[in-house]
């Protein structure tokens, strides 16, 4: 009785229909897991991970280099812009300076010309005055001589009627001498 029951239990447990435990370790599964995983590992390592990781690395390097190059280019551009600005302001200053100089020169020239023309005018006027004075003097002298001659002629005519010409002339000379100079 006891023996048969024992056998029945063993038979049921080992039959496969009976429920095992999740903690049972099946050596066949260990074997297949090892084979499967190692196979998968070597296949993927050779044909998947290596190319994928390599291209990732290449791409990351490429991106990094590109970013660095862009940064550098930007810096250079910034430098160029600031240089340009500096040059531009320099040129503007120069232009301003030139314009100012030109203006100053023009002003000076204008002054000079004005001054010169004023002086010239003054000189012309004074020359003209001197000339007028001289002519006046000349005319006055001529007039004086003519008057003297006319007077002498007139006196001669008169005296020829009355007196000796010599006496008369003396009197006239004397009279003329007594006349004021002008």
């Amino acid at each position: 009785m006891f023996i048969t029951k024992l056998f029945a239990l063993i038979a049921l447990v080992t039959e496969g229909k009976a429920v095992g435990s999740p903690l049972d370790i099946n050596p066949g599964v260990i074997f297949w897991t090892t084979i499967t995983f190692l196979f998968l590992f070597f296949i993927l390592k050779k044909f998947a991970w290596k190319p994928i990781l390599n291209s990732l690395e290449i791409r990351e390097k490429f991106i990094k280099n590109s970013l660095e190059a862009a940064e550098k280019a930007k810096e250079e551009a910034q430098k160029l812009i600031s240089e340009n600005k500096l040059n531009l302001s320099k040129a503007e200053q120069e232009a301003q300076k030139i314009i100012n100089e030109g203006r100053e020169n023009a002003e000076k020239l204008r002054h000079q010309i004005l001054e010169e023309s004023k002086q010239q005018a003054k000189k012309l006027i004074s020359d003209a005055q001197a000339e007028i004075e001289r002519k006046n003097q000349e005319a006055f002298i001529k007039l004086k001589e003519q008057v003297a001659e006319i007077a002498v002629n007139a006196a001669e005519k008169i005296i020829r009627e009355n007196l000796d010409r010599e006496k008369q002339s003396k009197i006239v000379q004397k009279y003329l001498k007594d006349l004021p100079k002008n």
């Binding site: 999740p22 903690l23 049972d24 370790i25 099946n26 599964v29 260990i30 897991t33 090892t34 995983f37």
Partner: peptide, 10 residues
């Protein structure tokens, strides 16, 4: 992975 033989091997 709910087999302890598999997880133990891994």
């Amino acid at each position: 992975t709910s087999n302890i033989a598999v997880t133990a091997t891994l």
